[in-house]
């Protein structure tokens, strides 16, 4: 069914080359030894979960715990080294909002480039353009090359495009951190609307209150392992335990 996600025993492995061999000369001289000697690093392993259409799932975990890696396998950028990922339906990945921008092109041209990167035709994007410009609040800046944008303006345009493509699955990877508070609130409202429309949401953030507000179910990642899968409150508690984080001591660390 459109909107379902299924991860079965997924592992993603990066080869860490002790000596990075990047030329044919080195490879020939070393008789291709690097191909055997590469150290492997599992950024995520043994991850299994199911997600029904319309669910909104959160994912939390320390930096480097493998969240982005898993989202990238869901988005199809990375192939899992083992296990299988099944994604049903059109996916809109908000992984790095500025990734698809060409700095030399204007905001308007970038809307079409971004749309094409997501597989949308020029005509489809043309019909969305007004709404995108409107949501991003860029006004006349839409006709300025994006290399002159601030990082907040990048984020606004990127979010406006990704949010307007009527996805069946929306992936959000820590992209709301940029942009001012009012725009963040506007984005959260938009994500809630998209969720209400029946879209599956896969949400990664370090802002626990956003995760708690948006997700009924939260996955906790820890050093590449999925260590918890359940209700948001419990998940956040588990995450803080793993961080050695005591909420009652946190607000006034120096007062004692």
């Amino acid at each position: 069914m459109a909107g379902a996600i299924s991860f079965q025993n997924v592992g993603v492995c990066f080869r860490m080359h002790r000596e990075k061999v990047t030329t044919l000369k080195e490879a020939v001289l070393g008789r291709f030894r690097h191909l055997r000697d590469a150290e492997v690093f599992w950024a995520a392993r043994g991850v299994s979960f199911e997600c029904r259409p319309g669910d909104s799932i959160g994912m939390i975990g320390h930096n480097g715990s493998g969240k982005s890696t898993l989202l990238k396998t869901a988005a199809g950028v990375l192939k899992p080294t083992e296990g299988s990922v099944r994604i049903e339906g059109r996916i809109s990945p908000m992984i790095e909002l500025a990734a698809g921008f060409d700095p030399e092109l204007t905001g308007r041209d970038n809307v079409f480039l971004n749309g094409a990167l997501m597989g949308y035709s020029r005509r489809e994007m043309a019909s969305k353009l007004d709404r995108i410009v409107d949501f991003s609040e860029l006004g006349e800046f839409i006709d300025v090359p994006v290399k002159n944008y601030s990082s907040g303006m990048y984020a606004r345009l990127g979010f406006a495009i990704a949010a307007d493509v009527e996805p069946e699955i929306l992936i959000v990877d820590e992209v709301l951190a940029v942009g001012d508070e009012r725009f963040q609130a506007k984005c959260m409202d938009r994500i809630r609307d998209i969720r209400a429309g029946g879209t599956t949401i896969f949400f990664v953030s370090h802002a626990m209150e956003q995760v708690a507000a948006l997700c009924d179910r939260v996955l906790v990642m820890h050093h590449g392992k999925l260590v918890f899968d359940g209700p948001a409150e419990e998940a956040i508690r588990r995450y803080r335990e793993l961080q050695g984080f005591r909420p009652d001591a946190a607000p006034h660390p120096r007062s004692a």
Binding site: K72, A75, G76, V77, P93, I95, E96, A99, G100, L117, M118, G119
Partner: peptide, 9 residues
């Protein structure tokens, strides 16, 4: 590579 790392095309 910037695009390839982030967008599945």
């Amino acid at each position: 590579q910037g695009l390839i790392r982030k967008i599945a095309v």
